[in-house]
Structure formats: structure tokens, C-alpha cells
Simulated assay, not measured.
Amino acid sequence: MEERLNNRQINVKNILLKYNAVLILIALIIASTILSDAFFTVTNIFNLLRQLVPMTLATLGMLLVVLTGGIDLSVGSVTAMGGMITAIMIQNAGMVSGASMIVILIAVLGIGFLIGCMSGAFVVVLKMAPFVATLATMTIIRGAAYMTSNGQPIRLSSEYDTSAMMVKFGSQGIPGIGLPWPVVLIIVVIVLMWLVMRNTVFGRLVIASGSNETAVRLAGINVNKYKFFAYAICGMLCALGGFILTSRVAVASPAVSTGMELDAIAACVIGGASLMGGKGSVGNTIIGVLVLGLITNVMTLLSIAAYPQQIIKGLIIVLAVFLQYITNKEGAY
């Protein structure tokens, strides 16, 4: 009898440790529902999901880099640049037809990919530490974003068909359901990312390169190639986030997404990813994004200032890291 009780206690403890991110999310949902009547409404939930799309894209990109044992501080700057390129092409480059939206999207993705390649080259070719390399990219791209607009926001003009389509895409949803189009897009991206990480050689080797780089190299695999493309894909996802952010607010600013890199890192950590590399999953990372988003959302509904939000975010990050440490320690025995 005593042995059964001990086994149950161990099982409960293991569940609490293994699914701590899920439990934190559930606790936040329950607390938010109790604290604010406006929280669990369709309008608020859809608005929350729509607002989290750029952040989710940046965090998925960050996850790829973190899995290789690196870090990318440029995600906020690349998101801002993606938005600036979108607005400039609509306003100043003659992109005035509805069909031009596809051209703009391809251009934004391409520029984001090239920026990611620059970070990847700094890390892989120049052998710079990821922190320093992406800090340089962050500074360069943020400065370029300011230069392209002379430091001023660019508002989408309603006289262009592309602007109308962009705003419609960012603010409206599926007829009859109301699910926002950006949320539909991010669901597709999440599923694709999940499939890539679980079922492709690329996904497995990205994880392996962060888990045991020496062993992967000894197996004759070019680790640098996978690191390089992790940064490149991260840049592409962040630029897509800028495109979607511009469609939602109908304005592009070189100052947007400042500090996004810290939230992206925090979401990865809350989701159980290890900053040492080799550990992390798409599902848990999305949970981390939702945890941070819920904190901001419920505090906004309660009219709480931004500064306390930062304190609570920090405390939750500490809790998540502490639980991760305990989980790793328990797993060592």
C-alpha cells in the first residue's frame, strides 16, 4: 500500500515537472477568466491571437536558432524591416494592384531570408559568437529601417487596392467563423514547422547539432550548413511577421518590435527550450508564446500599467527556468 502511494506521488511529481508550461498556461487562463469578464469573449480571444501572430513567427524562428545552440537578437529589427519594405513597395514603388500583394510578400520573404543569411554568415563563416553576430545584425537592420523611412512611420494609403487588401487581410476573418486570416496563416506555419522538426532530416539534424555538435561532425555531417539555414529561415519568418503586423495596423514604423527578441527568447525558455541547444519543441514553444500573451492581455483588460507586466513576466520566466532545472536534475537520476 505504501509503495503504491509512493509511486502515485512520483507520477504526480513527474507530470507536474514535465508539463509545467501547460499547467502555467491553464492556471493563467483560469485566473484571467476570474479577474476579467471581458477575457473569455470571442472578440478578445480573436484579438489576442491576431496580435500574437508576429511574435509567434519570431519565436518559431528563434526556436530554430536556439536548437542549434545559438541565439538571434535581430528578430525585432527584421520584423520592423519586413513592415517597412511592405509599406514602401505599396506607397512608393507603384505596387497599386491587388495582384501586387503576392509580389510584395515574395519580396519581403526574400529580404528576410537574405538578412538571416547575413547573420548565418557572421556565425558560420566569420566564426563570430551568435550573441555578437546577431547584435551587429540587429543594429544594422534597425538603422536601415530608419534610413528607408527617414525615421518616420509610413501609413498605408486607402487609395491603393493593395492597401485595402492588406488591411482586409489583417483585420477580417473567415466569413461565418470570424477566425482572422493571420491566425489561419500562423496555424499553417505552425503545422509545417512541426512536421519539419519531427519528420525531416533537416529538423532532426538541427536538434542534433545543438545537442552534440562534435558527434554530428564526426558522423561526416556539415553542421555549419544547418546552422546557417536556421538563421536564414529565422530571418524569413520575422520578415513575414512584419508583413502581417503592417496589415493589421495599416502603418509601418522603424521603431516597432523593439524588445521582441527578449520576448521570443522568454517564450522559448518558458516552453522548455534549452539555451544550450538541442532541446525544445514547436508545441511547447507555442505554449510559451500564449503564456506571455495572456499576461499582457489580462493586465491590459485590468488597466494595469506596462511596468508591472514586465515584473510578472520576469517572475514567470524565473519559475519556468527553475522548473526546467528541476526536471533536468530529476532526469539525471
Score class of each variant (00 low, 15 high):
6 N>I: 12
6 N>L: 15
8 R>E: 06
8 R>F: 14
11 N>Q: 15
17 L>Y: 02
18 K>P: 12
20 N>I: 06
21 A>M: 09
21 A>Y: 08
25 L>A: 07
27 A>R: 10
29 I>T: 03
37 D>K: 14
39 F>N: 03
40 F>C: 08
42 V>R: 10
45 I>Y: 06
48 L>E: 00
49 L>R: 08
51 Q>A: 14
55 M>E: 07
57 L>S: 13
61 G>M: 00
64 L>N: 01
70 G>Y: 10
71 I>M: 13
75 V>W: 04
75 V>Y: 05
81 M>K: 08
83 G>C: 02
84 M>P: 09
85 I>K: 02
86 T>S: 12
86 T>M: 15
94 G>K: 04
95 M>W: 07
106 I>Q: 04
107 A>Y: 02
110 G>E: 01
111 I>L: 11
114 L>P: 09
114 L>Y: 08
115 I>N: 03
116 G>I: 11
116 G>W: 11
119 S>Y: 11
127 K>V: 07
128 M>R: 06
132 V>G: 03
132 V>L: 14
134 T>M: 12
142 R>Q: 14
150 N>A: 05
154 I>F: 15
154 I>A: 09
159 E>G: 04
161 D>W: 10
161 D>A: 10
161 D>Q: 13
163 S>Q: 00
171 S>R: 09
174 I>W: 11
175 P>L: 14
184 V>M: 12
187 I>E: 05
195 L>M: 11
202 F>C: 07
206 V>M: 06
212 N>R: 05
213 E>P: 15
213 E>V: 15
214 T>E: 15
216 V>T: 06
225 K>I: 14
227 K>M: 04
232 A>D: 06
239 A>F: 04
241 G>V: 13
244 I>C: 12
247 S>M: 07
249 V>W: 06
250 A>P: 10
251 V>T: 13
252 A>Q: 04
260 M>S: 08
261 E>F: 11
262 L>S: 05
267 A>N: 00
269 V>M: 03
276 M>G: 15
276 M>K: 15
277 G>L: 12
279 K>T: 06
282 V>W: 11
287 I>H: 07
289 V>P: 09
295 I>F: 12
297 N>W: 15
298 V>Q: 00
301 L>I: 09
304 I>Y: 03
304 I>H: 02
306 A>E: 13
312 I>K: 01
316 I>Q: 04
317 I>Y: 07
321 V>A: 01
322 F>T: 12
328 N>V: 00
329 K>L: 12
329 K>P: 07
333 Y>I: 12
